[in-house]
C-alpha cells in the first residue's frame, strides 16, 4: 500500500518537474527566438551590410519616413517585414537568399546595385501588391483618411483610386528610395529602362 503511494508521488513529481522543465526551456527558447527575431528587425541590423547602408539607407534618409515634423518614423522592417507570424517567417526565410547574394557579391558596388535595382524593386512591388500594401496599412488606415484635411490632389486621387480597388503601392512607388530607370519619353531612352506603365499597372481586383 505504502509502496504504491510512494511510486505515485514519485511519478507525479516526475511529470510535474518535466512539465516545469519544458516550460522553463520553452520560455528561454521562445524568448531567445523572439529576441533574435526582434533584433533582425532593427535598422542597425539591416544596415550592418554595406549593400543596404550605402544605397537604399542613404536615399531613405532624405524622405518623410526617416525624419519629419512629428518624429514618428517607419524603419526598414516596418515596410519590408510583415507583422503577422506566418508571413514574417516566410519573409525571414527568403532573407536567407540575401545572405547567399551577400556571399556572391551580387550587389556589392553601387554600379551593381543600380544594375539590379529594377529587378529588386519589381519584386518588392509585386509582394506589396499581393498583400494589398499590408505594411503601409499597418500605420496608414485609409478608412480613417480625413479627406477634408488632405490636399486636393491627395483626396481626389485616393477617393477615385480606392473606389477602383487600387492599393497604396499602385501609386506610391519610390516612397523611400530612388526609382530604377523609367522610360518617360525624354530624348533617348536610357538603357535598361522599364516602360512607364510599370508605375501604374491597370488595376485588377
Amino acid at each position: 500500500m505504502n509502496k504504491i503511494k510512494k511510486v505515485w508521488a514519485w511519478a507525479i513529481g516526475l511529470v510535474f518537474s518535466a512539465v516545469g522543465l519544458a516550460f522553463v526551456l520553452g520560455i528561454i527558447f521562445w524568448g531567445g527566438f523572439n529576441t533574435a527575431m526582434e533584433w533582425t528587425n532593427t535598422e542597425t541590423f539591416c544596415i550592418s551590410c554595406h549593400e543596404m547602408e550605402v544605397n537604399v539607407y542613404q536615399e531613405y534618409r532624405n524622405t518623410i519616413h526617416y525624419n519629419n515634423r512629428t518624429g514618428v518614423r517607419a524603419v526598414c522592417s516596418d515596410c519590408h517585414v510583415p507583422k503577422e507570424w506566418w508571413p514574417k517567417m516566410v519573409r525571414k526565410f527568403y532573407a536567407s537568399n540575401e545572405l547567399l547574394h551577400k556571399m556572391l557579391g551580387s550587389i556589392d558596388t553601387p554600379e551593381k546595385f543600380e544594375a539590379k535595382r529594377a529587378v529588386m524593386a519589381q519584386r518588392e512591388w509585386a509582394r506589396m501588391k499581393r498583400n494589398d500594401s499590408q505594411e503601409c496599412r499597418n500605420c496608414h488606415d485609409f478608412s480613417y483618411f480625413d479627406y477634408a484635411e488632405q490636399a486636393g490632389r491627395s483626396s481626389n486621387a485616393h477617393q477615385k483610386g480606392f473606389a477602383e480597388g487600387q492599393t497604396c503601392i499602385d501609386c506610391h512607388k519610390g516612397i523611400a528610395h530612388k526609382l530604377p530607370a523609367i522610360d518617360q519619353g525624354f530624348g533617348d531612352t536610357l538603357p535598361g529602362a522599364l516602360p512607364a506603365d510599370v508605375l501604374h499597372p491597370v488595376s485588377t481586383r
Binding site: N62, G174, L179, I182, Q184, G185, F186, L190
Partner: peptide, 29 residues
C-alpha cells in the same frame, strides 16, 4: 500651385512627368 517636397528628379526618373506627361494628365487632372 502645389507642394513638390521630396519629388524625385534623378537621372532615372522625373516625378513631375508622372502627372504632367500627356499619357498621365487625364488620370491625374
Amino acid at each position: 500651385p502645389h507642394s513638390v517636397t521630396n519629388y524625385q528628379v534623378t537621372l532615372n526618373y522625373n516625378k513631375c512627368m508622372d502627372c504632367h506627361s500627356w499619357s498621365r494628365a487625364q488620370a491625374t487632372g
